[in-house]
Design a protein around this nucleic acid. Structure first.
Lengths: 351, 351
DNA sequence: TTGAAAGCGCTAACAT
DNA sequence: ATGTTAGCGCTTTCAA
């Protein structure tokens, strides 16, 4: 595709009959220029529609005014919200963002990071990094050259910059809420394998203990892969099978909204009324939790804030001479909607 | 934040005891270098972990190997899918992507474009551009310097590169399907204002005409803003009001899945069974159409392909010397799921 | 096969 | 107030 050549500072200088430094001074407005020359140069700039090359500027300034984001999956609504938060805060501060998708693959993630490094981005945000890369020390070398912030993901004892959600408190808030509604037979739905599910399961057990409610292991349900659209179907069919039998909890806690919607769909098929007969609570507060009927009570993770905080942290690191490794833990918030109500029956009483 | 300086080609040259040109030849492997020097240089490159600066390369090559994407809203699931398609195809071809959000605002959209131009991206993809900018000629000048592809949006008689969906055929397919199921009382739900709604409404009218079904204007429902999460609620409450009265279509065609889910929720509240009593058909095939109960029958727009095609078109434009303005129209596909069935009652017969 | 040098578009220190 | 010039890190002629 044949394209016109961009106008350069030299084109402007010639046309305005001044030197390139004068043009530079005018467009940057950082050194005195007589108002007459200034005006003349500005006219030419407008006339030629001259836009300074950020590439050339970056070469000199040794910065690109760009951040790189790496997500394990663009279409996962959770990550999408985080990306929005990052993009918003970045663009307000005149930073552009590169978006790359690691597809949840550690090797691809490393490739993305290297690409961003060679593009000399001013900072990198990795959302839900692969545990493998977090533990291998891969990021140690990278971090010497470019600021990195991790959003969620494995972080136990790691010395990096983190923005995390307080999933523990979020989980116990949800559970305490259910218990305050009179529920004791609370089923726990989790996915196959993730740091986050393990944390929640531990909290589940300890909250139950604290209330002297015996933990029934049959009430801990694993629905496999937890972050795809299939999650809903998997959770739904597993819960359908369970609820068809004499498995009759009065409430269901789900590790994320996808699973909660799955449980909800299973109840609908079985004509079990939510929340009248069973209360369901989700986690994350992704948009589908608002679209279900009834609307899902859930725990908000404030993904937008997660993203905004990550971008702000990067911005801060760029400003300060020495920045201590920081770990920010964000509060979650219980969103009471329509899928939970006071228990009407006790224990295994048939529906 | 204090960061180590990146190693430059000069560091490598010194350490290897050769000139920078030799190092360049080695890393680019484009000119003869004796195998001994080559090996030595390669060792140093590895040792210093040298990565050539893409900024410097871009300055010389006058290309950045980056594309820019502009979306009206990152979290809109429809756009997210398109972005995924673009990112995938771009990264396979070694292009990175800048993501920017215009928030559906024409002025912000222009700002994003200008930023991308000054970053000297090799191509720009604008998803659902503002009609205002399409008609004002704003893009005429831009296009002289950088290849642009538009995905959907206003395109009537415009001489730009487009990737579009065949919404007309998609709409008539959906309608014909409903009619083949015996439906005649088909309600049409649309949003406030968009080229796409208008097109669909026209098709609706002509399909009805073709089947000699009188068009009842009360059956054309406008639910306002059509692309936010509120869309579901708006559509739901409007349909709730309507369906509570003697408004009794046997089928509902919705301009997008959000509205369809809204209609579905209204039916649930009114204990109207879908599809037994009313058939509902959506449009787009975004993920929530799979999560509802029953699953939504809808028209797939193949957003992934939309994005992939846009990126491929850009890639093509970059290769060819002169590229004719192209308009690619993608086929839609009727996805038959569980929200439509053969009509059981005729006309206004009470449910 | 290798090195020296020009130059991509711009900024900033140094002259004047 | 304005011009001249040295580079930012790299590629690519041109010489040797």
């Amino acid at each position: 595709m044949k394209k016109k050549d961009r106008k350069t500072i030299l084109d402007v200088a010639k046309e305005a009959g001044v030197s390139i430094s004068t043009v530079s001074r005018v467009i940057n407005n950082n050194y005195p220029v007589s108002s007459s020359t200034k005006e003349r140069v500005e006219r030419v700039v407008k006339k030629l529609d001259f836009k300074p090359s950020m590439v050339a500027r970056s070469l000199i300034a040794r910065k690109t005014d760009a951040f790189g984001i790496i997500v394990p999956g663009i279409t996962n609504m959770f990550f999408t919200m985080v990306v929005q938060g990052i993009e918003r805060t970045s663009s307000i501060n005149d930073y552009s963002v590169f978006l790359s998708d690691s597809k949840g693959d550690g090797a691809k993630e490393r490739e993305c990071v290297k690409n961003l490094v060679s593009r000399e981005v001013d900072g990198i945000i990795v959302i839900d990094p692969s545990t493998e890369n977090m533990l291998s020390g891969f990021y140690d070398e990278i971090e010497e050259f470019v600021p990195i912030v991790f959003v969620n993901g494995y972080n136990d004892g790691l010395q990096y910059n983190f923005i995390l959600n307080d999933e523990k408190t979020g989980t116990s808030d949800a559970l305490e809420y259910l218990i305050s509604l009179g529920h004791k037979d609370i089923c726990f739905i989790r996915g196959y394998k993730s740091y986050s599910y393990d944390i929640k399961e531990n909290v589940y057990k300890s909250v139950m203990h604290a209330h002297k409610i015996p933990v029934n292991n049959d009430y801990i349900i694993n629905v496999g892969e937890g972050n795809s659209s299939e999650t809903v179907d998997n959770a739904s069919s597993i819960m359908y099978g369970l609820l068809s039998s004499d498995f009759k909890p009065t409430a269901i806690f789900s590790c994320n909204d996808l699973m909660a919607v799955g449980a909800l769909n299973a109840c609908k098929k079985l004509q079990i009324k939510v929340p009248e007969q069973i209360s369901i609570i989700g986690f994350d507060n992704i948009i589908i939790s608002e679209l279900s009927e009834p609307k899902l009570t859930t725990v908000d993770q404030n993904m937008l804030l997660l993203g905004e905080s990550a971008a702000k942290m990067l911005l801060d690191m760029l400003k300060r001479e020495n920045y201590e490794k920081t770990r920010i833990v964000l509060k979650t918030r219980l969103i009471k909607r329509d899928s939970c109500s006071r228990v009407k029956r006790k224990g295994y009483t048939p529906l």
